[in-house]
Each structure stands twice: as structure tokens, then as C-alpha cells.
Nucleic acid binder design. Structure first.
Lengths: 203, 203, 203, 203
DNA sequence: CTCTAATCGAGACGGTACGTCGCGTCTTACG
DNA sequence: CGTAAGACGCGACGTACCGTCTCGATTAGAG
């Protein structure tokens, strides 16, 4: 279990045909992830959905994982960058809300990645990248091994976001942020008092 | 992603040869899970490792998943039965410790299931079974959708146990229970005061 | 161009299914050779024609050449055995006629091999095997390098037989034997007087 | 088996770059034919050997066969023109010797064509062209179908020349012509007495 | 303690996806 | 502005594993 999606990121191609091919392949992958598990998806299926030749897939990506990496790896890094401040901020709830809002605004993409067929792989990639980012931070608490803090914090956050995206639109980003903060963030950073009362519809 | 390992449980066979075949197949599966991902494992590989004929596998299990179900499903139910009281108990920490102790005492099996190549599948089966068990309980808190409570509670617990089993022997069941309680259980049940001080080596 | 069909001959299989598979594959090969060149024939085509699975081909033969070897190599050896006496016999015409008669009686097989799409390969295999057979014979004539004698004798004989089989039924084995003897055999062995007059319809 | 190399002959190009491209492509083809079979040769390989771009090949020839046609077809016609007189001449041996001498003087080219990887194809092209040339001649003998005479005469001649070119330099054109005449020409034209004694080193 | 039927190993079978390669066409970007 | 470089759609290659099946040859357990 040592996939590393980041290894697979691609340089921007110069040829216009390559740009097009990558675009349709990425779209096909995302489209298929809404229908089935990552490893039920076949390269032949991706090529067909993308309207490209089978061999063309391999001219761009060596494996399915590579394509998923190209689709997801950068998005994951972006979302993680948004997550880090949570651990530092005086008021961690604000950062948690910012995270949820961002995910809600890109619901289509993150639904495919967190609630679709690649959820497991994307989850692991999140944790893998998070581990790398945290290495140079001070240990937040002596009772909690830093590594476990990362695994739990990242994993539980992803799970809650995935659950939110899977259940549909009937829960707001604020509601989700409040739950996420109370269940995961506060226990980790020891800040449980800052969450505003939901009745105030705070902004 | 709707695997249901419980569907695959098997009745106890009467013929002595069947008993033997299932035993070696189960052992082969667990042994392989320590080396690679569940879906990198091949039925031909399992047969070979078990020292049995390829077709013999199908005489006992219709798919790899069925074998994993036979190996894991009952164990999962047992562990979950141990977990339920946590949510009710006056002192939830005691139940959490009982859970960790039990897992630590069957470290070999649970290492394969929670830290080996089937971690993802076993995790999902845990959540699936937990959802079923919780359905008839009252909603523990109005701020938290019951379904999310199950997903988060089960998932996070499995993650922490998996991390513990993966890192080796250098952390006690007590340490793990304390962390698990503080990070997951207490935020869920609203009981944060009952954890004894580690210095007291409480019994 | 150093194919060696004889390398590819197969032991008789014990399993009844294998016997059947080989039979239909051989038949498919012969059938296709009547329609197109050997290297226009595709393994997928052979499998389809044989009504067998594509992968099954490779369970029996590693290449197309191997299958052709299995079809042809033994037949070639048999025909060559019939050819050798020509060089020794007091009356070489009788042996030549025997050769032509035999080929005429197995017209279907030899049409596929000598006048069909594998003509070139079969021709080379004939020469290759003939070279091996002749090695231990005395040099028939000092003016003619033995090797060239084999190449010419075998090649020209195959050509004439191939021409005969390709043109249809309107020439008898006797006519063909007489031409073959006069054009190829007699110049090689120096016996030009023994051919009976066609008008006598000699027996 | 209906290749027709002559169809592929090319008009002389006017552009100087085109002249160059064709020259290097032709040379590359001949060079590769000394190493491997015609159909083991790849267009990519020809382009690489020629030091030209892959697509450039197609600007000059539509297929490999076309290139081979351009290389060989005219040479074949030339050699055949030299062969025809053999059948008419009073003293056919002189013409046979002329043929061998000519081939010997262009040994490099004819080695590639007759003893290299295209031997089979070139042989067939010889016979095909010869058939066309002979059509308007009177039937040389009633015992021998004209068509078979051509096939045998051309085929056997090519074989003997190919054998000579393949075996190296240690046999003179005279020796070869004498063998060729005795084995092939004389039996065809019924002239067996005119070959001079080799001891006389006739000129 | 036999005999019969279930179970076994071995592995062939029809399928299908894999990743590679060469084809011949068509586009791009460079010199 | 023409040409090399090479991406493209296509389809055959040979490999691997799937799940089904047919074989004898044990071998367990009922009579």
C-alpha cells in the first residue's frame, strides 16, 4: 500500500493535441469515478469515454494511478494548504469553516474524489502528503504522537467531508464545519470554546 | 462500493478434508495480506500458498471477497459487540480500554486485517456493520446526524487501532485507549473527564 | 530467414481436450492457407476459424510458425523419404512417378502446403531438411557442389509440384512425373534415357 | 500472393532534396536486407537507418513494398532482358555466361536482392515479369507447358544465382554458368552439347 | 473393513484487460 | 514555408488471471 499519486504529476505539454488528449482523459476519469470504484474502471473504458484511442492513453499516462494523480494530486495539495492554518490559528473554527466553504464551492470535483470510487486512494494520498507537510512542525502535544495526530486529523476530516458530499445538499457548510471542528479539530488542538452558537448564523 | 463481507460467511463443513482446505486457504489469505494489497492478491496465488489446487478454491469460496468474509466478518462482529457498550457505559474509558486490550491480545489477526492489505475493505465492513447495529438506538445528540456519528466513530477508531498495530509493540494498550478515548470517544459522548491520569497506572 | 519448422513438432498430448484443440487449430491453419499468405494470417484469425479461444492458441503453440511446423514438418519428412530413392534407383523415373502419385493422392494437403500461402516457408523447410539428409551421401558428381545439387533438386521439384497442384486437375501424375524427370532429375543424375514414351501409356 | 513490385516504380524526381531522400532510403533498404528478412524490417527502422524523418518515408513511398519495387524492379527487368536471348541463341551457353558475368559484376546489389532477406519476394517478381515477357513467344516444346517452362527456368536460375552469391567468392562466373547451363538451360532448350570443356578456359 | 461417493491436484478451456509495437494519417512547431 | 518530429486512431501481439470444466487418484466415512 504505497501508492504515491504525487509522483505522477505531469508537466504541462506544449503540443495542442496533447493538451486536448489530457483534458478529455481527465474528464473521463472524473466522470467514471462517479459511477464505479477506481479499480473497477478499465483503461479501455477511460479511452472509450474520452473518445480517444486505447494506445493514446499510454502516450500520456503509464497507469490508471498516474491519471488519477494528474487529476487529484494538485487539488489535494491545494486543499491541504488550506487545512494547515487550522492547527495554528488562534480561532481554529474560522479556518475550518474556510475549508468547508471551499470544498462546497467545488462540490463536483470533490464529490468525485472524496465520495466517488477513488475515495480510498485519495484519502491515502491526503494522509501521505499531510505527513510530509507536518514533519517540520513542533509536536503539538506530548500525549499524542505527531504521526498519529496527522493520520487521525486528516483521515477523520476527509471522512466527514466525504460523508457531507455524499449525502447531498441539505446540510450547509457551516453545519459541517461546526461538526468537524467539534469532533476532530477541537480535540486535537484543545480549543473547544470558540465555536459560535449556530442560532446566531454568524458570518 | 457495496461489498458486504457478512454475506459470505460459511457454515461449518462436516468432511475432514473440507475443514483442512478452508483452514489452509484462510491462513494463506492472512499470510498474503501481510505482504500486499487485497486486490493485488490472486486466487492462483492463494491456492499456491495454501498448497491446494486452483479449482479447490472455488469449491469453498466463490470469490476472493468470500474468503476474506470468512476470515474477517465474524471477527468484525465480535469486535463491534465489544465497541457498542462504549457509547452507553457510564465510564466509557473502561470500555475503550477493554477494546484495545482485546485487539492487543489478538495482534496477529488484527494486524493483518487493520494494518495489512485489506485495511480499506475491512474498514468499510466495520462501518457497514456498525450502521446496522446503530439503527435502533436513540440519536445520541441533536447536533450530530446519527449516521455521521457512526461513520466517524467507527472509522476513526479503526484508523487509530490500525496505526497502533502498524507501528509495532512500543505503545501499550492503555496509552492507545487513552488517546482513542480523548480523540474520538469523548467528543462523541460528551464525556471528557473520566480518563484517569496515566501516572496512576490505574487498573 | 532461418526458420526451422522441425523444431516445432509436438508430442502427442494425452488429454482429450488437447487432442481436439490441436486438431481444429491445424485444420484452421490449412483452411486459411488456401485463402491467403502465411504472414497475412493472424493468430486471432486462426483461433476464430478454429472456434477456439485466442489464449488457447498459445497453450499449444508459441507462434504461428510452430503451428505450421506441427502441420507440415512431418509431412515434409515423409515426402522427402519418398524422394531420396530417386537419386539411387537404377530407374529413377519410377521413383519420380511414385512421388508424383503420392502427392496427387494427397492433393488437398499438398495444395495448401505447396501452392498456398505457406509455399515459401514450406519450400525452405524442404531444402533445410533435404540438406540434413544428404550430408552423409557420397557426392554424386564432381562438377556439381553437393549443396547446390540439393538446393536445386529440392527447390525445382517443389516448384514443379506446386505449379502442378495450383493449375488444377487437368494434368496427370504421369505427365508431371515425366516433365519433372526430364527437367530436374535426369540432368542431376545423368540418366536421360529411361523415360518411357508417353504414347505407350506404360504401367 | 499477388505482389507486383513493378507497380511501384517511381518517376525520376526533379527536386534535389527528393533525389537525396530516395537515395538514402534505397541504400537503407539494401543495407537492412543484408541483415534481416524483408518483413522483419520496419519502416521506422528504414527511416532511422536513412537518417530521415519517419513521415518522410511516406512522402516518397506508400509502403515498404514500394521502396523495394523502386530498388529492384528495374534491375530485375534489366537482368531478364539479359536472360531472354538464352532461349533463342544458337549457342545458349554464351548467353548464360553473359548473365552470370553481369551478376558477378554487380555482386553487392544482387547479393542483397537474391541472397538477402527479400529473396523470396524478388524471386516471385522475377517469375511474374518473366511470365509477361514470354506470353508472345511460341511454345518452345510441346511436352512442356509454356507457363511451367517459365516458372521452372526463371525460378531455378534465380536459385542457382542466389546460392552462388550466398556462398562467397570462391566460385567463378564460368563455373556457375556451366552448372546453370547443364542443370537448367540445356534441359529446357534441348541443347546439351555446346558447353565447352572447362579445361580450355574458353573465352 | 470394505466400498462408494465426495473431494482432491492438476490444468485445459473461452474470455477479457493488460501494456507494447508498428502501421499509415495528420498536425505542430522549428529552422 | 517546408520539413522533422511525433501524436493520433487502429489493431495484433503475447501475457496473466478470471471462473468453468473435465479429468483421474486419493480418501473419508457409511454400511
Amino acid at each position: 500500500m504505497n501508492g504515491n499519486l504525487a509522483e505522477f504529476r505531469k508537466d504541462a505539454p506544449t503540443d495542442a493535441r496533447q493538451v486536448r488528449s489530457r483534458k478529455v482523459l481527465n474528464a473521463a476519469m472524473l466522470s467514471l469515478l462517479e459511477e464505479k470504484t477506481f479499480d473497477q474502471i478499465t483503461i479501455r473504458e477511460i479511452s472509450a469515454r474520452a473518445g480517444t484511442g486505447y494506445a493514446t492513453f499510454f502516450r500520456h499516462y503509464s497507469t490508471k494511478e498516474a491519471l488519477l494523480g494528474d487529476v487529484a494530486s494538485e487539488e489535494i495539495a491545494g486543499l491541504l494548504a488550506l487545512t494547515i492554518p487550522i492547527l495554528h490559528a488562534a480561532n481554529s473554527y474560522e479556518s475550518t469553516l474556510a475549508l468547508c466553504t471551499y470544498v462546497g464551492e467545488h462540490r463536483t470535483l470533490w464529490s468525485a474524489l472524496l465520495a466517488g470510487g477513488a475515495a480510498g486512494i485519495v484519502r491515502e494520498e491526503f494522509i501521505r502528503q499531510a505527513r510530509g507537510l507536518i514533519e517540520d512542525l513542533a509536536n503539538p502535544a506530548e500525549w499524542l504522537p505527531r504521526d498519529l495526530g496527522v493520520v487521525h486529523g486528516t483521515g477523520a476530516t476527509i471522512d466527514i467531508l466525504g460523508w457531507w458530499l455524499a449525502k447531498g445538499q441539505d446540510q450547509s457548510a457551516e453545519d459541517t464545519a461546526r461538526i468537524l471542528h467539534r469532533l476532530v479539530i477541537a480535540p486535537l488542538v484543545g480549543d473547544g470554546a470558540a465555536v459560535p452558537d449556530p442560532d446566531h448564523h454568524q458570518g
